[in-house]
Amino acid sequence: MSIQHFRVALIPFFAAFCLPVFAHPETLVKVKDAEDQLGARVGYIELDLNSGKILESFRPEERFPMMSTFKVLLCGAVLSRVDAGQEQLGRRIHYSQNDLVEYSPVTEKHLTDGMTVRELCSAAITMSDNTAANLLLTTIGGPKELTAFLHNMGDHVTRLDRWEPELNEAIPNDERDTTMPAAMATTLRKLLTGELLTLASRQQLIDWMEADKVAGPLLRSALPAGWFIADKSGAGERGSRGIIAALGPDGKPSRIVVIYTTGSQATMDERNRQIAEIGASLIKHW
């Protein structure tokens, strides 16, 4: 067993022997301040990774656009098919120029040779490549099948209805392509620590998230040296922004954090800054 596999296998073990965790309302004060600064709703939840206990939450059962955070769930569904012998990570998928959609920095470079399922998941999570996500959605049967996968996990809230990039439209009061912070946090925890996926697939999923290259201005910008984070960000229309993450000190994750916002007129930089400040408060009061 590799060191990384050992780390993920012992996530519940280490967490069980940690000192009790206590909620700190100071972080919620910052979440509410972010709402004021952005002029928009902000949803927040913080779960203990081992027990699933909610440590703090704000608007945990209000719907927010998922945006690209759905790509972690998508690759979880792909990995479940791999575990069941219905898919192979090494299978190569070929596609054409007509398949390319807006923001496809990886797939646009491989029109000639195609990409493997493993490479597509890596591109979808680490670079948020939209064509990679659409190609992977095709392998599982489309958005409705991802929703069905989530329902089978016990998540009857999260739903995907459309493809990239239309799913980022974020129309107010439109339930399409949305989740709730509580539902997303619980589902992410199941994917990373539950028995739904094999140990190898859980490790692969967290490795992809740990290698995320496009979430630097968010929670990662607030992390002290030595902290662990595996995350996936999302951005959408109407001032929408979000991030889902597993993080913790001492090089291992111990909490799940989900943050979503929508309806702001603020710039992307300002949305990023507010999420980073929430992260800084979380870490300060850990």
Rank of each mutant, 00 (worst) to 15 (best):
H24D: 12
E26P: 06
E26H: 01
L28R: 07
V29K: 11
K30W: 14
D33T: 04
A34M: 07
E35W: 04
E35M: 08
L38G: 13
G39W: 10
A40W: 02
A40Y: 13
R41Y: 12
R41E: 14
V42L: 00
G43D: 06
G43M: 13
I45G: 05
L47S: 03
L47Q: 01
D48M: 00
G52H: 00
I54W: 02
F58Y: 08
P60R: 07
E62C: 15
E62P: 09
R63K: 03
R63A: 04
M66K: 13
M66P: 09
M66C: 02
M66G: 05
M67W: 08
F70I: 05
G76H: 05
A77M: 05
V78W: 08
V78R: 10
V78K: 13
L79A: 05
R81Q: 00
D83S: 02
D83Y: 00
A84S: 11
G85L: 01
E87M: 14
L89C: 12
G90I: 13
R91A: 06
H94W: 13
Y95Q: 15
Y95R: 07
S96H: 02
D99G: 10
P105D: 07
P105V: 03
T107Q: 02
E108N: 02
H110S: 15
L111W: 10
G114T: 06
V117L: 04
V117A: 08
L120R: 07
C121I: 12
S122M: 00
A123T: 00
A123H: 01
A123K: 00
A124S: 08
I125C: 10
I125K: 11
T126D: 12
M127Q: 03
M127R: 03
T131K: 02
A132S: 14
A132R: 04
A132K: 14
N134M: 06
L136T: 05
L137S: 05
L137M: 10
T138V: 06
T139G: 07
T139V: 02
G141P: 07
P143Q: 12
K144N: 08
K144G: 08
E145K: 01
F149P: 08
F149Q: 14
L150T: 03
L150Y: 06
M153W: 14
G154F: 00
D155K: 15
D155M: 14
H156K: 02
T158L: 01
R159I: 00
D161N: 08
R162S: 09
E164L: 14
P165N: 01
P165V: 13
N168R: 12
E169S: 01
A170K: 01
I171E: 07
I171V: 02
P172D: 09
E175H: 00
R176K: 01
D177W: 06
T179Y: 15
A182M: 15
A182K: 15
A182H: 07
T187R: 00
T187A: 04
L188R: 05
R189W: 12
K190I: 15
L191P: 07
G194H: 08
E195T: 11
L197W: 14
T198N: 09
T198D: 04
L199Y: 05
A200F: 07
A200I: 02
A200Y: 03
Q203M: 15
I206D: 00
I206T: 12
A211K: 00
K213H: 03
A215E: 04
L219C: 09
R220L: 08
A222T: 11
A225P: 04
A225K: 00
A225Q: 03
W227G: 01
F228G: 13
I229D: 07
A230H: 04
A230D: 02
K232S: 15
S233A: 05
S233D: 06
A235M: 09
G236C: 11
E237N: 15
R238Q: 15
R238K: 07
S240T: 05
S240N: 00
R241W: 14
I243A: 13
I243P: 12
I244K: 04
D250L: 05
D250F: 05
K252F: 00
S254D: 01
S254V: 02
R255Y: 08
I256G: 15
I256D: 15
Y260F: 01
Y260T: 00
G263M: 09
S264C: 02
Q265F: 10
D269C: 02
D269M: 12
R271H: 03
N272A: 10
L282Y: 01
L282H: 03
I283K: 11
K284C: 05
K284T: 04
H285V: 03
